[in-house]
Simulated assay, not measured.
Amino acid sequence: MKHIKLLILLGVVVAAISCNNQTGSESTELAVPVSVENIRLKSIQQFVSTTGTAKAVYETELSSEIEGNYILQTNPRTGRKFQLGDRVEKGQVIIKLENAEYLNGLNIESTKLNLEISEQEYEKQKSLYEKGGVTLLEMRNSEVSMISAKNNYESAEIQLSKMQVVAPFSGVVVALPYYTEGVRVSAGESMVSLMNYNKMYVEINLPEKNISEVTTGQEVMITNYTLTEDTLVGHVTELSPIISDETRTFTGKLEIDNPELKLRPGMFIKANIITAQKDSAVVIPKDVIMTGSRGKYVFIVGRNSAANDRRITTGISNQDEIEVTEGLSANDRLIIKGFETLRDNSKVKVIL
């Protein structure tokens, strides 16, 4: 009877131990929930970021060159007087200044007639000289008279042009001071300001550390907080070769293509200067990389739903992504969430 009790007690102890071992084994096999991303080859750009204010490449303020009565012209595009925001073409007359006294003083008709007479006289003297009818001196004197008459006429035309305010380039009216129609304005008064911002530029300052990687000709991606869906393309056009001993920066200039006029003068922009680019590269998010005693590593889902750590070597990078040159391949299942507590060969369960 005593032996039977001992056997029963021994069986209970063995069963308890076995149960405990089975529970522990099951706990070690619990799978960690993770999210994965299949690695695909894609392009990556490395860039230097900077900011600045966009300015028009072409801009001017036109003033009156003479005194005269102010007459704002009609815009043929709209059929009304010119207004702010109107487009103008190169050579288009925006404002006229009427001044009868000034116009009479130019003697345009008489100087033009004098030029015609001088030209006819020169041709006559030239013909006679070829026939031996006049001396070389007489022909040359007629040529001098003709040249003088021509200069007088051209000078009069230049003075006449001052009675008009003409667009020196195609652009947009950005300032148009108000004057009552027909009122007398003095010489030197501001008449109109024009800008052409199909192309724009930005003056930049870059840290000393970037002087070896930023060069002229590099492409620049331009964004603005009011144009969140649009990225414009520009280029580095100028760079200073010296470093400021006060700011430890160097200056440069970017030129931006703005064909649809989405970017406006005065807008604050962000510019990403592309300093390196790779196509068909293994690219992963920066924030999934772990660092240990043996360097950088990430986790992928391997066989039997186990996490495998992969030591990696990295290449170019930007704010969010980085190129992996060794350690990963296309179609590897990279763990992007839930990797923080993993170890090599940890059981994982992939969730959405």
Rank of each mutant, 00 (worst) to 15 (best):
L7G: 14
L10A: 15
G11P: 00
V12C: 10
S18Y: 10
N20V: 12
T23N: 10
T23K: 14
V32K: 15
V34I: 15
E37F: 12
I44V: 10
F47Q: 02
S49G: 12
T53N: 09
Y58A: 12
Y58C: 05
E61T: 13
E65T: 00
E67Y: 01
Y70D: 01
I71Q: 09
I71T: 06
R80H: 12
R80V: 12
L84D: 00
K90Y: 01
Q92A: 14
Q92K: 06
I94H: 01
L97D: 04
E98M: 09
E98G: 08
N107K: 15
K112D: 06
N114Y: 01
E116R: 14
I117E: 07
S118G: 06
E123C: 02
K126T: 04
L128C: 02
K131W: 09
E138T: 14
M139Q: 14
N141D: 13
S142I: 03
S145T: 09
M146L: 10
M146D: 00
M146E: 06
N152Q: 10
E154P: 02
E154N: 11
S155W: 03
S155L: 13
A156Y: 04
E157K: 12
S161C: 11
P177H: 05
Y178K: 09
T180C: 02
V183K: 13
V183E: 11
V183D: 05
R184F: 03
V185L: 08
S186Y: 02
E189V: 11
V192C: 03
S193T: 02
M195H: 01
Y197W: 03
M200F: 01
V202D: 01
N205T: 04
N205L: 12
I211K: 14
T215C: 03
T215K: 15
Q218P: 03
V220H: 06
Y225W: 07
E229S: 15
E229R: 13
D230E: 11
V233A: 13
H235E: 08
H235G: 01
E238W: 15
L239R: 10
L239I: 11
P241K: 06
I242W: 01
I242K: 12
S244I: 10
F250I: 13
K253I: 11
K253H: 05
L254F: 13
N258G: 02
M267I: 02
M267Y: 07
F268E: 11
N272S: 13
N272R: 14
N272W: 04
N272C: 05
K278T: 05
K278D: 01
S280W: 08
K286A: 02
K286M: 09
V288D: 03
V288H: 05
T291P: 00
G295L: 10
V301L: 10
N304T: 06
D309R: 15
Q319L: 14
D320G: 01
D320K: 14
V324W: 03
V324I: 14
S329F: 07
R333H: 05
I335K: 08
F339T: 00
E340V: 05
E340H: 07
L342A: 07
L342K: 05
N345Y: 09
N345M: 12
S346C: 05
K347D: 04
